[in-house]
Design a protein around this nucleic acid. Structure first.
Lengths: 187, 187
DNA sequence: ATTAACAGTATCGACTCGATACCAATTAAA
DNA sequence: TTTAATTGGTATCGAGTCGATACTGTTAAT
């Protein structure tokens, strides 16, 4: 029953990370979920910086996320702006202090200590194993994958070496393609 | 920066597991933390079934854990009993309905779906990678490892093939040695 | 033009969590 | 052996998460 072993390890890792996030966030008056939202906003692209995207990513309800965002806005860690084309949609951008805070918090020192003990080969093995498990978990449950453009079926490379998203019909810079997207779909 | 990749994956896995635990627990009126406590009590040995051990395992405060246990006791999912030798210490045993519930809840269907997609080799790779990361995380931060006897320095094998713990000075059955222990220390 | 779907907010109750204070049993120190 | 510190656990409180429900405003479908 390897499944149970894997489950145990993932559950425990998740707990430990939450403890680390709680410690790190507490120094700035933030809850673990706040740290996660700030983290998400620091790695998502401009099509995925909305309350609904955060909702899908964290697996919470939109009402819950709305409250969380209100707190972060009040603390001036993010700025809301209404989409030009669709006035229902709100975009969330990290403020300067928000960006600074994310850089401070992530990854937590708890985690850096651990990785320092591992060889580059071990880290690579762990990285690919985790990604494999994650993808299995997401696809098996029909959840959004939130991957980067490199692994997305909509991504096209133009003849001059630039990138183009076939879904939103927009050109993307190389930096763009490093960010995660709520519309991502595996190839 | 593989560390960040690993951090991202672990954080995301932890979130997804919590969502699964929330869904599974909600059907029985339980919070995620309740599911985790029940799970822990189902895999810990008789020296580790105390409120303080749960506290160390989950990384919460003893006050918080005390409340959680009170809820589980009121729901008749566990039974408290006072230690004979040290009357400060409380032992926590899953009741019959508690045991049944754990078997129902774990691992969550969310997780079983995912593992079904993976080959036995992939599962083995993931399992060992996770354990490696977990151990690094725990030892780097001086946290208790909560391992099984097989990997504990106090474990001795007697000439007749039985087991003996050099710390508590007690013989252990083969079943005992499959459970996790708060006194566990890596070899 | 009406209806349905969608993004987001407001409010409420149940619950977690840490902090603080507290009690009883055990152990260490004097 | 009395006293002080330590340990395991509980009680209470306030801040905050979370889901459920109900709601507004915008866009898409018919």
């Amino acid at each position: 029953m390897k499944q149970n072993h894997i489950y145990n390890s993932v559950e425990r890792l998740g707990d430990l990370l939450k403890v680390g996030a709680r410690q790190a966030g507490a120094e700035h008056g933030l809850q673990p979920v706040h740290v996660e939202v700030l983290h998400y906003l620091s790695i998502c692209n401009r099509y995925s910086d909305t309350p609904m995207a955060v909702t899908d990513y964290l697996g919470l309800t939109k009402g819950t996320v709305s409250q969380t965002l209100k707190v972060l806005e009040k603390k001036d860690l993010l700025v809301k702006s209404i989409d030009e084309n669709d006035k229902r949609i709100t975009h969330l951008k990290l403020s300067e202090s928000g960006q600074k805070l994310v850089a401070d918090l992530l990854p937590t020192s708890l985690f850096m200590n651990a990785c320092a003990q591992l060889s580059p080969e071990q880290q690579s093995n762990i990285d690919s194993s985790l990604k494999l498990l994650l993808r299995a978990l997401l696809t098996a449950n029909n959840l959004k994958t939130f991957g980067v453009c490199k692994t997305c079926r909509y991504n096209q490379q133009t003849s001059d070496g630039n990138y183009f998203c076939g879904l939103v019909k927009q050109p993307l810079t190389s930096d763009d393609t490093q960010l995660i997207c709520r519309e991502h779909e595996d190839i």
